[in-house]
Computed example of a mutant assay.
Amino acid sequence: MLNIVIFGPPGSGKGTQSEKIIERYGLVHISTGEILRKEIKEDSDLGKIAKSFIDKGELVPDQTIIEILEKKLESLNNVKGVIFDGFPRTVDQAVALKKMLQRHGEDVNVMLNLEVDRQELIARLLKRGQISGRSDDNLETIEKRIRVYEERTFPVIDFYKKEGTYTPIRGVGEINDIFKRISDAIDAVKV
């Protein structure tokens, strides 16, 4: 299986690029953000817990995310691979993902880090908020989300550097140009 972690700050284009990766490589997309938004929309217990953190620009606790992911991974059969979007966001989550995949005889093949400067991120997220109406796409929450990313999730990069799977991707420019850089990186490690 081909297992990819797509990484980057809020607004870096993970969702857009994930769709293109899925289309080209036939992978299953696991987006913790989408799963959480679905739970929030359904007003489930998990959704209520998640909403209380998300509305404040904070990360949902590791254990909650790990339980969701374990359940999702166990439901997959005969897939070409998985793209993990929005997970892991902490080193503890990265370790948990490694253990989960190893139980299935798998590992992360490549970690793609979409690099975009702070001002570009803010501009993209404000624009997305105007279009989608997402409650977490306002300036105060955006700045907090980026700060939380920098403080809590940036160390995950070091984890994947040590694993030997880290690949930086310049996440600025035309969508197809960014995707070409991503495809080159995936093709270099494709199993």
Rank of each mutant, 00 (worst) to 15 (best):
G11Y: 04
G15F: 06
G15S: 08
T16E: 05
L27R: 01
V28G: 04
H29F: 02
G33F: 08
L36Y: 10
R37N: 04
I40P: 07
I40T: 07
S44C: 12
K48T: 03
K51T: 09
F53R: 03
I54D: 10
G57E: 01
E58P: 03
V60H: 06
D62C: 02
Q63S: 14
I66N: 06
E74P: 00
S75N: 05
L76Q: 05
L76S: 03
L76P: 04
D85G: 08
R89N: 02
A96D: 09
K98E: 15
L101D: 06
Q102P: 10
R103D: 15
H104K: 15
E106S: 13
D107C: 12
V108Q: 07
V110M: 10
E115F: 01
R118W: 07
I122W: 03
A123Y: 11
R124I: 06
R124T: 11
G133Q: 06
G133M: 09
D136A: 08
N138G: 06
L139K: 15
L139Y: 08
L139T: 10
E140H: 08
K144A: 02
E151W: 11
R152Q: 15
I157H: 08
I157C: 04
D158M: 02
F159L: 01
K161Q: 11
K162G: 10
E163Q: 14
T167R: 14
E174G: 14
I175Y: 09
N176E: 15
K180W: 00
S183T: 14
A188L: 12
K190S: 05
